[in-house]
């Protein structure tokens, strides 16, 4: 009986698993395979096997390594700042008794905007001579800021725009987690003598751990894949200050038409993401114990 149930279960899930395999696994396997060939769109074909040649070439390429480094900085900056802001806003909203749905709606607005539109919008807003931000700064006597034209500034501008665009994702997820927390431990902690910060540190953070892990992971993976904003706002410039890895790989595939190398880079990125995911997962579990 039990075995028949199990077989029936497999039968029910088989179509879904097959579809998942076809949709998710196939491209990954294809990319993995392609990464070992000198495959270009100019001459597509699996005629010349190059082994780990593409990987070696990528690993020895200064621009690629620089992109990886910039991406790491970007991800850490974006995720860390978004997490802090997201947590603060979520905590504030969690205490709000009235108008929560209005706040939700306002917060969700940026998230609903297409990243391309976000990029165009901010390019306009941050236009050094014609944009509203520098005009406003000018009214209080601050010299125009070169938002996208100076390397360090451009990096932080892109970080800020991404934060503006995505921070509500953090807020919404964290808020959902916060509002699902039980209230009693907080009252117990207040009587135990915990200050607001101690309650946050010793009660909220540990209780939120699963939500935080998932939120950070998702945001991190999204951040690594950041592409649209870079494409619209800086094209990786000025210099190579904002040349994020996804945009780099995209160019390798669609400008250079060198799919073999692009796939090798994508596979390396995949390995790094998988590794980071595992590390974060384990770290967070240890903290909890």
């Amino acid at each position: 009986m039990e075995r028949r149930d199990r077989r029936f279960g497999w039968m029910l899930s088989a179509p879904g698993l097959l579809l998942l395999g076809a949709v998710v696994l196939f491209p990954i396997v294809w990319a993995g395979l392609t990464s070992f060939f000198d495959y270009t769109l100019l001459m597509p074909g699996y005629d010349s096997f190059v082994g780990i040649g593409n990987y070696r070439m990528a690993a020895g390429q200064g621009e690629f390594l620089h992109s990886a480094w910039i991406t790491l900085l970007f991800v850490v900056a974006v995720v860390a700042i978004q997490f802090v802001i997201g947590m603060v806003v979520a905590l504030a909203l969690n205490d709000a008794r009235r108008g929560k749905s209005v706040y939700y709606l306002i917060l969700l607005c940026p998230l609903l905007i297409n990243p391309v539109v976000v990029g165009l919008m901010w390019r306009m807003i941050l236009h050094p001579t014609l944009g509203i931000v520098n005009w406003l700064l000018g009214t209080v006597g601050i010299a125009p800021v070169n938002w996208l034209g100076a390397p360090d500034m451009a990096f932080w501008t892109v970080v800020l725009v991404d934060i503006w665009h995505q921070v509500s994702f953090m807020v919404v997820l964290l808020l959902a987690g916060l509002s699902a927390l039980p209230t009693e431990p907080y009252e117990a902690a207040r009587c135990d003598g915990a200050t607001a910060f101690q309650r946050f540190w010793h009660i909220t953070l540990p209780l939120m751990r699963p939500v935080i892990i998932v939120t950070l992971l998702i945001r991190m993976i999204f951040a690594i894949k950041t592409y649209d904003i870079i494409y619209i706002m800086t094209r990786g410039g000025p210099g190579v200050a904002t040349d994020l890895i996804s945009y780099f790989i995209y160019r390798r595939a669609f400008v250079s038409l060198d799919l073999g190398q692009a796939c090798a880079m994508a596979v390396m990125l995949l390995v790094v993401i998988a590794g980071m995911t595992a590390m974060l997962w384990r770290a967070m579990r240890q903290v909890g114990e």
Binding site: R123, H127, P128, T129, L130, N134, P144, V145, N146, W147, L148, G149, A150, A154, M233, T234, G237, P238
Partner: peptide
């Protein structure tokens, strides 16, 4: 040139 020209695309430069 204006501040930020290093990041201008042609439409932004044309606007100036």
């Amino acid at each position: 040139g204006p501040v930020g020209a290093a990041s201008f695309s042609f439409d932004e430069a044309f606007n100036v």
